[in-house]
Simulated assay, not measured.
Amino acid sequence: MDIIDWQNDNEVHMAKTFFDTYVSAWNPLTKADQNNTVSYTAIDDPCLADTTKIFSMSPATDYEALVNTLERHTKCTQNTCLRKKGHLLQCRYRAPWPEQQTSTLTIDIDNKPCYAPARNDDRLNIHSPCMLSIWQANIDCQLVTSRKAILQYISKYASKSEKKSEPYTEMLKTIVNATTSEDTVFLTYQKFMMGIIADHDINTQETCHMLQKLPLITCSRQFISLNEVMLLGNLWLEVGLVNGSIGLVKNIIYEPNTKPPDLPKFVIVRFQNYKGPPWDPLHPNDIPITPIARGRHTQIPLTTAWAITIHKSQGLILDKATIHIGNTEKQGLTFTAISRVKSINGICIHPPFSFERYAKMQKSAFTTIKKKEETRLQQLSALTSTLLDCNLQL
């Protein structure tokens, strides 16, 4: 656009034809039908159609449904697009747009190239019919009319700051206050979930990488997995499937025509310390855990791995653990907790205990009994060594 000779009608026409090829603002419906609101169910919603349905219908019919569902800017409200300009509220997108039978490409009053498509619907956004049909969802379309415009666009979004999201409690209060008595619980929950997605503290690029399971070189946020589980029982000691092994649930597989509360056929868990033959060559650490019959009960030997009591940890073998030993010493529980972990490097005691706590442990009745037992064992060991030496000399 920067090299067009605006005095040359042929060059201007070629540029305008180029834009006409890729974008449109022409509604395939007649003027009388454009403002007829159509309510789609989950079955006939064009955005939810599967590929079989899309390929079996006419492309024109599919496009007609998509463009009137997604691309019409039907309402202007203060919560969406209305902004104060002086004493008046105006749409930030400048809708409604003037209708015209043919497209135009001109220089506006600010000496910038301005393209306006042919339009028979004053509420229809400029869009790409090809991208809309492929994506089956709303896609913002911004025409590049100059090198300066695209540089301004990139710099604007590269330096754009976003306010921190509201706490979930405040977000829920806002949604509840805006909910009417006619709204269903499902609608309120849906608004809450949409608010969580819309008010984000993570940039779009990272979100796209994670949705497509692409590796991130660095990440601006830390994530806590909600699907961490612990194995209950020694299934295969040699390969690392031991009591206390920690893994992440990757999938839950049910038999046909079954669902919760029925037991699944198996749960696929990813154990990082698994050293055995791969069940799935593409994911060698993913292992199916099947239900096990114990007495009269059949259960899956897994439990959530957020936290357990020290009593429950007895018999487990852990790589690492954060240990809360409480305010008072209870019959050697500190020793029990610490001895569950393989290495001292895997132990984190939080909150840390004071020296006074350690001093009290030394004076406790349990410590006194333990010291007497250790003294007795040392004496017995010395006597045994003496007798062995005597026998060797004879």
Rank of each mutant, 00 (worst) to 15 (best):
E329V: 06
D45A: 02
D9T: 14
A305E: 05
P277R: 06
A137C: 14
K320S: 15
P28C: 06
D140V: 01
S181L: 14
K16I: 09
N273G: 13
P291K: 02
I246F: 03
F186M: 11
Q7Y: 11
I154A: 12
N111K: 12
I292N: 00
M14I: 05
F223H: 10
L232A: 10
L237D: 15
L316D: 05
D183L: 01
T218C: 08
D199M: 11
I347S: 03
P277M: 07
H324M: 09
Q393W: 09
S381E: 07
C348K: 11
A382T: 01
D121I: 00
R83T: 08
R376S: 04
T290F: 06
L392Q: 14
H297G: 01
P264E: 06
Q136S: 08
G326F: 02
E228A: 13
M194S: 13
T41I: 07
C219Q: 15
I369N: 15
T303K: 15
M171T: 08
Y274N: 03
A95E: 06
N79G: 14
S146D: 01
M171A: 14
W6E: 06
T80W: 10
I109C: 09
K164D: 13
D110S: 08
D45E: 07
A149S: 12
I253L: 04
H350Q: 14
T303G: 15
N251K: 13
K265T: 02
A65D: 07
V176N: 04
S161H: 12
R376G: 01
G240Q: 00
L89T: 06
M57P: 05
Q101G: 14
E356R: 07
C208R: 11
I3A: 15
P288E: 01
Q378N: 02
T174G: 05
P352L: 02
T52F: 12
L226I: 11
F266S: 04
E206N: 09
I287L: 01
E228F: 03
I246R: 09
V23M: 05
Y168K: 00
I287F: 08
A337W: 04
K156L: 13
V12C: 11
L48T: 00
K85Y: 05
T77G: 00
S56I: 06
Q152E: 15
Q7M: 11
N177V: 05
I253G: 02
A137F: 07
Q190L: 14
N234W: 02
A293M: 07
D319Q: 15
N10Y: 07
K173S: 15
N391S: 15
T30Q: 12
Y22Q: 10
E373Y: 04
P260H: 09
T303L: 12
N391C: 14
S385E: 05
A116I: 09
P352S: 07
Y40S: 03
S103L: 02
I139Y: 01
S364A: 08
V67M: 03
T207K: 14
K360T: 11
S56C: 03
L248M: 11
K371I: 10
